[in-house]
Design a protein around this nucleic acid. Sequence first.
DNA 1: TTGTATGCGTTATCAC
DNA 2: GTGATAACGCATACAA
Lengths: 357, 357
Amino acid sequence: MAAPKSKSTRVTLIDVARKSGFSPSTVSIVLSEAPLSRYVAAKTKERIRKTAQSLGYRPDVFARSLRSRRSHTVGVLVFDISDPFCVLILRGIEKTLQSTSYLPILMDAHHDRKQFEGYLELLMERRVEGLIVVANWLFDEGGLLEALKNKHMPTVVVGRDVSEKHIGSVIVDNEAGGYIAIKHLYELGHRRIAVIRGPRMLSDSNRRWSGIQRFAAEQGLQLDERVVRELPGAIDPFSGFEGGAQLTEELLQSRSKFTALVAFDDLTALGAIRALAREDRSAPRDCSIIGFDDVPLAALSTPGITTIRQPMEQMGSAATNRLLEVLRESSGSGQVSTDLELLPPSLVLRDSTSRLA
Amino acid sequence: MAAPKSKSTRVTLIDVARKSGFSPSTVSIVLSEAPLSRYVAAKTKERIRKTAQSLGYRPDVFARSLRSRRSHTVGVLVFDISDPFCVLILRGIEKTLQSTSYLPILMDAHHDRKQFEGYLELLMERRVEGLIVVANWLFDEGGLLEALKNKHMPTVVVGRDVSEKHIGSVIVDNEAGGYIAIKHLYELGHRRIAVIRGPRMLSDSNRRWSGIQRFAAEQGLQLDERVVRELPGAIDPFSGFEGGAQLTEELLQSRSKFTALVAFDDLTALGAIRALAREDRSAPRDCSIIGFDDVPLAALSTPGITTIRQPMEQMGSAATNRLLEVLRESSGSGQVSTDLELLPPSLVLRDSTSRLA
DNA sequence: TTGTATGCGTTATCAC
DNA sequence: GTGATAACGCATACAA
């Protein structure tokens, strides 16, 4: 009864106006909950809402956006969705956006700069009101930030520390993470600890390394530089695996002694485990290994990987809230503050680390 | 020089018309490459394009869609993006769409039925012209298909065999996959082969089992039903891991002998490996294990998992092409043929299976 | 081959 | 408190 069969003829605001006996303007004001609706009689509102409901009225997004110049959307530009790192962040973004009137428009750049710029253009054309960029560690600052900067668009980057004017960023506290990682191994009795650092040009990598060094300094622990290696700069989110395997192999063959390894991230740790296996060794029996990130597969490998967890969903939420703040103070500065937001990492205990026998 | 500074005043079609000296309609016809543009003088076209370019003209999507009743978008509704299974399919979809004028609008239902329906509504409101649903094996047919059916919308489902009118589907040939899996183990010399089937209510699961049985029948191989188990129906893409671990444990304790295991999917295989480890055994030394899907982490675990690969990117392309066909024969039936499209699986050799000693 | 006029469904600005 | 009217930017039937 309620739903009319009109499948070809769309129900418009005019229809609602006619049927309810009010003018289109009043109906519009009521149904879109415009500021003016405060002055509309409660009974009128109700009547209008009822008839709208009964007619199955759906406002036309295109007409609405054309007239109001607002899209009620935010662009979510992810640098590479196949990176397991990103998915939980997306979830955080989506959940946070859910309770608002904003719709996320998600684009995946496939870690390709051209695509990134193309999609950025696309999002601008679609008049998104803000932008959340989900970057991973391969996000090459050089080019892409340029593209972002001179758009006049509130932007928050999550997963990468971009120190640019008017672009906010949300990342994990990498320094604390590095500290916690080595502390864990130290507390298990390990003293000869190898490290596979991330690429040097990467700020995340350097921060983690700082944390490691700080702990070592505090404890008077000597880090043997013969067992500190560095991943090459890479172009693929899975290259950490290859790199980790390769460097671990070198480490094993170098005959320098170590009983534990801090890996740059979980993939690197998985690579290390693979390399160990090739030499007929295993974690944690022959070497304790700790990762970073806590991507989903860290829990699924055998042994499960002890790791430093990035609160990814939370990072997504934080970035979104940051953006929403700006959007709500509509037509204030229209710019996100440049602050860097650091979220705390945490230790996740699994089976790849154990007390030194 | 080229880009005008007008940041507040948008460049419209009228501006282009004025500057180029042609009428708005001619400009529109040319720039939107409407059918009529065939009759426009080449020189006119060029002049118009030039001035459009020089003014930095960007058509307004909203105005355009409002008037033309077309959105140039297709909805991509993924059942759960955190399922690693989905991501490559998405890539296939996106790549295929790239060369067209269609833009994908991606929504993630978080394997939640309510959300699925909500987003479906949303996509309808946004006037998507077609729909691609990326389902995984948890996609519950009962409810969700209902929601899809009575929308008047060309739809293709990938990853799940839905036998509904006017909904196309693209999946891997599960029967062939099951056949290939057990054949591989058989050829390695295994005869006592355990199987962990998927949930019984799942058609994928039954198909794979059929393939296994067909091979067994052909070879006169006896499948010992004491070592055939079945995963419980589940609500989480990662539950296959727990289930696999649990059932493998039972299998090991049942004291029935087996030298190899066909797991329902890669996660199940990972669970099995975990269970083996708990009993101080390992693959492939004590038991060869083969998975299904070839999700990214299959290559990263140690041992790497030998598996039956679903051509996921290809499945995404196939689904997209299927949809595009319908969209292009604009206002034909407007319905996707109900055909089921089966893509061939393939064997991926890694380290979790080996010749029986 | 090109120009004119009209309307898509909504919201904003006024007037009442 | 509510209603008339004019845009928003574009595409299309029709006239020329």
